[in-house]
Simulated assay, not measured.
Amino acid sequence: MTRHLYLISGMGADERMFQHLRFPGEYQVHVLHWLPPRPDEPFTDYAARMAAGMATNGPVTLLGLSFGGMISLEIARQRPIEKNIIISSIKHTGERPPYFNWARKLGLYHLPDQLLFRRRHAIVKHFMNVETPEEDALLRDYLQKKDFTYLRWAVNTVLHWENEFIPPSLVHIHGGADLTFPLKFVKPTYTIPDGGHFMVMNRAAQINGILARELEDL
């Protein structure tokens, strides 16, 4: 029987983030691409528009990376999900690092584009735990995008995200060295001790082992 697996990448990223992942042969793999947000669009409404891109009405498996993990949980509120897998993400408000709350209270997301989004390669590279030239080249490509409307909406959404809904089928894979969402604030199902926020690229072998076990158990 063919099963459907939908991938949702991290903020501003695309399916290249999943290039090293491998899935059991019975899965038909799809990508849910980010959509341009509407002005002041609530996260729930945005998730509904993303979910409308699914080709099947039956239960599916979602795999969300970072911000994509958060939106996968919003989708899981709205339609049947067979299994919800998040990688390098958070699953409820209590796992959001304190510095996110500080940024929200200080209103840093209101800074001009030139300060908030330009010349940010060094700090983003650090928090992404980038390790190889291949990863750095991919990050640079993502950072060249000038769709600051989407980025501003996404940053604002992350800082204000409130969630206590945890799907019973949730699998949370996290890195012990993640700087964006530090492990001390997160309680994952699986921990890759030396994995950082970019571990989907550089710890794919370990992640693939977990995926094989979790997806073949369905």
Score class of each variant (00 low, 15 high):
Q78K: 12
S66N: 05
M50R: 02
G25W: 06
L32C: 10
G69Y: 03
M70W: 05
M50E: 03
G69S: 09
Q28G: 03
H30V: 06
P42I: 15
K83D: 03
T44F: 06
G53A: 04
E74T: 12
G58H: 05
I75Q: 01
H30Y: 15
R77F: 01
M70P: 01
E41T: 04
R77W: 01
F23E: 07
R38K: 14
H33A: 15
L63W: 04
I71C: 00
H33P: 11
P80T: 07
V29Y: 07
E26W: 05
A47E: 00
P24H: 07
L62V: 06
P36H: 10
P59F: 02
P39T: 14
Q28N: 11
S66P: 01
M50K: 02
I81K: 02
M70F: 04
I71R: 01
D40L: 14
Y46W: 09
V29N: 08
L62Y: 00
G53C: 04
V29S: 12
G69I: 07
K83Y: 03
M54Q: 05
N84E: 02
V31F: 13
L65F: 00
Y27L: 12
L35P: 10
P36L: 09
L35N: 15
V60N: 02
L35G: 13
F67E: 01
E26H: 15
G68V: 08
L63Y: 02
V29F: 09
R38N: 06
F67L: 15
Y46Q: 09
I75N: 01
A47Y: 06
T61D: 08
P80Y: 01
K83F: 04
P42R: 14
D40S: 14
P36F: 07
T61L: 05
G58T: 06
G25P: 00
P39I: 13
R38G: 03
M50F: 04
H30P: 08
G64K: 05
T61V: 15
P80A: 11
P42A: 14
L62N: 01
A47H: 07
W34E: 04
R38P: 05
L65T: 03
R49S: 13
Y27H: 10
A55K: 01
A48Y: 05
M54S: 03
L32S: 05
T56Y: 09
P80D: 11
D45R: 15
Y27W: 03
Y46A: 06
P24Q: 09
R38A: 08
H30G: 02
S72G: 08
H30D: 07
L73F: 04
A48H: 10
M70Q: 08
P37K: 10
E26V: 13
A47T: 10
A76V: 10
H33C: 13
F23V: 03
K83S: 04
M70L: 11
F23Q: 09
A48P: 00
W34I: 12
G69H: 02
N57A: 08
E41K: 06
M54L: 13
Y46R: 11
A52F: 07
I71T: 09
V60C: 07
L73I: 13
G68L: 08
